[in-house]
Nucleic acid binder design. Structure first.
Lengths: 347, 347
DNA sequence: CTCACGAGGTACATCGATTAACCAATCGTT
DNA sequence: AACGATTGGTTAATCGATGTACCTCGTGAG
C-alpha cells in the first residue's frame, strides 16, 4: 500500500507503470507500441497496470523522441473586418476534427490577420516542431505558402485550388465550377436573363474558377453577365455590391453570390430596398451553411460539402504524415440545393 | 561555406546555434530565456546566430523539460444535431486567440458530442501532458468538469456560470441577467404586455440566470411571462417553440430568444407564417453575432461581448498557468443593442 | 552432455532544451 | 601583493519515452 514515489499531484510516468507491472520501462513502451516481443500475459499485465494508474505516454516526451507531435495546424485568416466566411470555418473544422480525433491527433488552431503574419506563424510552428503538418485554405495566385511549407519540411494540403501538379497536394475543388453552372442553368430555366455575380477577392483561385464557370454557363446560353463585382467577403462590400446592382438601369433579376454569408447580406439589402426575394430578385449562395435554411426565404445555394472537404483534407494530410488511412476519395461534386430564394423572373 | 552538420531537411538544434555563435548550448538557452548572466554582446551574437539559422527552441523538448507545453485546450461540445450557437464559438475563439498568440501559446481545439466523451478527452489530454490548462464553456448544474480538472491537476476557467466560490475560477457572467432585464424594459416601453421567452437547455446555468432575470423584470412591472419554452439550441426546437407561440390564443407580441441563432430562426418562422417583424411580433436575440446585422430587419439583441469574455478567460487561465498578465477585468456588462426587429406593440 | 537457437526481456544511449552547480578570469581593496 | 567579490560563462544531470543491442533462460538436436 505504500507507494515509494507517491508525490501528490504528479502525473505517473512510464517508470511507475513499469514498477507496478514488475517489468522494465522498455517493456511498457513495447506493450503500448506493438513493437518488441512480449508474451500476451505480460502485455496484458502492463496494460492493466497502466490503466490502473491512469497512465498515457507523455506527448512531449514521445514527440521529442519520435520527432512527431501528432498534431496538425489550421491557420485561419481573419481580416481586420469581420470575415463573412466565418461559419464556413466551423464546418471545415468539424470535418477535420472528425478524422483527427479517432486517431489521437490534435488540431492546433491559429487566427491571423494577414499574409505576413501567417507566414511568420508557419515559420515558428515548424521551427518549434509544434505540428506535423498544416491545412492551408483559400489558395491564392502565386501562393507562397506551399513553397514555404515545403522548404520548412512540413507536409501540407491546400484547399480551394484547381487540381494540378504542385508542391503540395490539393483537395478536390476541381469541380467547383459545376455547382455554379448548375445554379446558372437553374436561373435560366426560370427565365432569368439579367444575372449578376458577386465574387470574392480576385486573388483567390476559387474566385477565378467560379467566376469563369459563371461566365461560361451564360455564354453557352448566348448571354453575357449583367455584371461581375469583386468583394473582400466583408459585409460592407457585399451590401455595397448589391446596392450598386439594384441601382443599375435595368437591374438584374438574379444575383449569384460567392458564399452564403454574402448572399444573406444580399437578401437583406434587397428587402431593405423594398423589393421582394425572389419576387423581384432571385438570390443564390454558395456553401450551404446551416444558416441559409433558417431564413425566410430559405436560401437556394450550392452545397460544396465543406465538412467532407475538411475530412478529405485531414485524411490526405494524415497519410502524408505517414499515418495509415483508408483512402476514401471526396464523395461527389458540389450540387445545387434549390430552396425558396429563387423563383421565376419577373415581367 | 562547408557546414559540417548540414543534413538536408533537418531542423537546426540548439547545438548548431551554439556552434555558430561559438558558445555552449547553455548560453544559448540563457540568451533566449533571460535567465543566466550573459554579456549584452554575447547575447546579441547568439540571437543573431539563431535568427540566421532560423532556430526556435523545440517545443516538445522544452515541454518535456519544463513540464509546460504553452498550449491550452478548448473543447467545444457539438451535439449531433447542428448546434445553433456555432458562430458564438468563432467569436469566443477569436477572443481567446487574441491573448494567446502574442505570448506564443497555442490553442488546441477539440469537438465532442457528449459529456462522456468530453471527460474522457480531458483525462487523455492531462495524462499525455498535452496542455497546460483548459477553457470550459457552458457551465451546467452539477458540472463534473471542474472537479475532474482539479483532480487531474489542470488549471481551468469556467464560462457561463454565476460568479461564486468554486474549484475553478469563473469569468464574469454574473451580470448576464442585466442584459435580459434591459431587453424586457425596452419591450415594455414599446407597449408590449405579452412577452415570451425561448430559452436554452435547462441544465445550463446561464439558462437559469437569464430566465430568472426575464421573469423578474416582468414581475417588477406587474406582469407574468406569456410563456417560457426550453430548447436544445437546435434549429428544430427554435422553430417549433416559435410556431407554438404563434399558434397560441392571444399570441405574444414579443419574443426574447436565448441566443441570436435561435432568434434568426424565430424571425424566419414568424415571416413564414405571414406575419411581420416587428409589425406583428418583436424579436430580441442574445449574443450580438455579426449575422444579426445582416438581416432585414436587423436584429435587436443583447451584446454580451463574447470576444471580450474569451479574452478575459484566456488571461485568467494564463495567469493560473503562471504567466504574467496585466489583470484587466472584463469591460462592462452586457448591453442591449436596439436595431430593427423590435417595435411598438400592435393594436 | 553440449551446443545452437529462439522466446522473452532488460540495459542504456538518445531525442533537444534547461538549469543547478561550478569554474576561470578580471576587478577593486587595503 | 594577495584576497574576496563579480562577471561571464561551462559542465553535466535531467525531463519521459523509445529502440537497438544485448543478455538469460529453457528446449531440442546431435
Amino acid at each position: 500500500m505504500s507507494a515509494p514515489t507517491e508525490r501528490a499531484g504528479r502525473r505517473p510516468t512510464i517508470k511507475a507503470v513499469a514498477a507496478a507491472a514488475g517489468v522494465s520501462t522498455a517493456a511498457v513502451s513495447q506493450a503500448f507500441n506493438q513493437k518488441g516481443r512480449l508474451s500476451e500475459t505480460t502485455r496484458r499485465r502492463i496494460l492493466d497496470a497502466a490503466s490502473d494508474l491512469g497512465w498515457s505516454p507523455s506527448a512531449p516526451a514521445a514527440a521529442l523522441r519520435n520527432a512527431r507531435t501528432r498534431s496538425l495546424a489550421l491557420v485561419v485568416r481573419r481580416p481586420t473586418d469581420v470575415l463573412g466566411a466565418d461559419p464556413h470555418f466551423s464546418e471545415l473544422i468539424t470535418g477535420i476534427e472528425g478524422e483527427l480525433a479517432p486517431r489521437g491527433y490534435g488540431l492546433l488552431l491559429h487566427l491571423v490577420t494577414g499574409p505576413r503574419e501567417e507566414n511568420a506563424l508557419y515559420e515558428r510552428l515548424a521551427a518549434e516542431g509544434r505540428v506535423d503538418g498544416a491545412v492551408l485554405t483559400d489558395a491564392r495566385d502565386d501562393d507562397a505558402r506551399p513553397a514555404l511549407l515545403a522548404r520548412l519540411g512540413l507536409p501540407a494540403v491546400l484547399l480551394g485550388s484547381p487540381d494540378d501538379t504542385a508542391v503540395v497536394p490539393r483537395v478536390g475543388l476541381g469541380e467547383q465550377g459545376a455547382g455554379v453552372a448548375e445554379a446558372v442553368a437553374h436561373l435560366l430555366r426560370l427565365g432569368h436573363r439579367r444575372v449578376a455575380y458577386v465574387a470574392g477577392p480576385p486573388e483567390l483561385q476559387h474566385t477565378r474558377v467560379r467566376r469563369a464557370a459563371f461566365e461560361e454557363a451564360l455564354r453557352e446560353a448566348g448571354l453575357r453577365p449583367f455584371a461581375v463585382l469583386h468583394t473582400d467577403f466583408s459585409e460592407r462590400m457585399a451590401v455595397g455590391a448589391t446596392q450598386a446592382l439594384l441601382d443599375a438601369r435595368d437591374r438584374p433579376t438574379a444575383v449569384v453570390y460567392a458564399n452564403d454569408s454574402m448572399a444573406v447580406c444580399g437578401i437583406g439589402t434587397v428587402q431593405r430596398a423594398g423589393l421582394g426575394v425572389p419576387r423581384d430578385v432571385s438570390v443564390v449562395g454558395y456553401d450551404n451553411l446551416p444558416l441559409g435554411s433558417w431564413l425566410h426565404p430559405r436560401l437556394t445555394t450550392v452545397d460544396q460539402r465543406v465538412q467532407q472537404v475538411g475530412a478529405a483534407a485531414a485524411r490526405l494530410l494524415l497519410s502524408l504524415c505517414g499515418e495509415e488511412v483508408g483512402a476514401a476519395a471526396l464523395a461527389g461534386r458540389p450540387r445545387l440545393v434549390v430552396r425558396e430564394s429563387t423563383g421565376p423572373a419577373p415581367d
